[in-house]
Measured scan of single mutants.
Amino acid sequence: NKFNKELGWATWEIFNLPNLNGVQVKAFIDSLRDDPSQSANLLAEAKKLNDAQA
């Protein structure tokens, strides 16, 4: 379904953000699993944090 596809894509993108540490990645992935409907918002937050830590 739509959420599974978005969840998978967001998970892959978060895993590939180079400036996040393992704890941050795990926290974002756990949040995605808790509420897949928020995948776009969580991915945006992860990208912002990644950019801030560059």
Rank of each mutant, 00 (worst) to 15 (best):
N1R: 06
N1K: 12
N1P: 14
K2R: 12
K2H: 13
K2W: 14
K2I: 14
F3G: 11
F3V: 12
F3C: 15
N4W: 15
N4M: 12
N4C: 15
K5S: 15
K5R: 05
K5L: 05
E6R: 04
E6T: 07
E6W: 10
E6K: 06
L7I: 11
L7Q: 05
L7C: 12
G8C: 15
W9Y: 11
W9T: 10
W9N: 11
W9K: 13
A10M: 10
A10T: 11
A10Y: 15
A10I: 15
T11P: 05
T11D: 10
T11V: 15
T11I: 15
T11F: 15
W12T: 14
W12Q: 14
W12E: 15
W12S: 13
E13H: 05
E13Y: 15
I14W: 03
I14R: 00
I14K: 02
I14F: 05
F15R: 07
F15I: 15
F15H: 09
N16R: 05
N16F: 07
N16P: 01
L17W: 03
L17R: 00
L17G: 00
L17E: 01
P18L: 10
P18V: 08
P18W: 04
N19M: 05
N19S: 04
L20W: 01
L20G: 00
L20N: 00
N21A: 05
N21W: 10
N21T: 14
G22E: 14
V23P: 09
V23R: 10
V23Q: 14
V23D: 11
Q24S: 01
Q24K: 00
Q24N: 01
Q24A: 02
Q24D: 02
V25D: 00
V25R: 11
V25K: 15
V25L: 07
K26T: 07
K26N: 06
K26W: 08
A27I: 09
F28E: 00
F28Y: 05
F28C: 04
F28D: 00
F28M: 01
I29T: 03
I29Y: 05
I29C: 10
D30Q: 12
D30P: 01
D30M: 06
D30G: 05
D30V: 06
D30K: 13
D30H: 06
S31Q: 14
S31R: 14
S31V: 07
S31N: 09
S31E: 09
L32G: 00
L32K: 00
R33T: 09
R33W: 15
D34T: 09
D34E: 14
D35L: 06
D35F: 09
S37K: 06
S37Q: 06
S37N: 11
Q38D: 07
S39L: 10
S39Q: 07
S39R: 05
A40F: 09
A40W: 10
N41Q: 12
N41Y: 11
N41A: 13
L42S: 02
L42V: 14
L42W: 03
L43T: 03
L43R: 02
A44Q: 07
A44D: 09
A44G: 04
A44V: 09
A44F: 07
E45Q: 11
E45A: 13
E45K: 09
A46G: 01
A46H: 01
K47Y: 11
K47A: 04
K47M: 08
K47D: 01
K48Y: 06
K48C: 13
L49E: 01
L49W: 03
N50R: 01
N50V: 01
N50E: 01
N50K: 01
N50W: 03
D51N: 07
D51R: 12
A52I: 12
A52S: 09
A52D: 06
A52M: 10
A52E: 11
Q53P: 02
Q53R: 04
Q53K: 04
Q53H: 04
Q53D: 02
Q53V: 06
A54L: 08
A54N: 08
A54T: 08
A54Y: 07
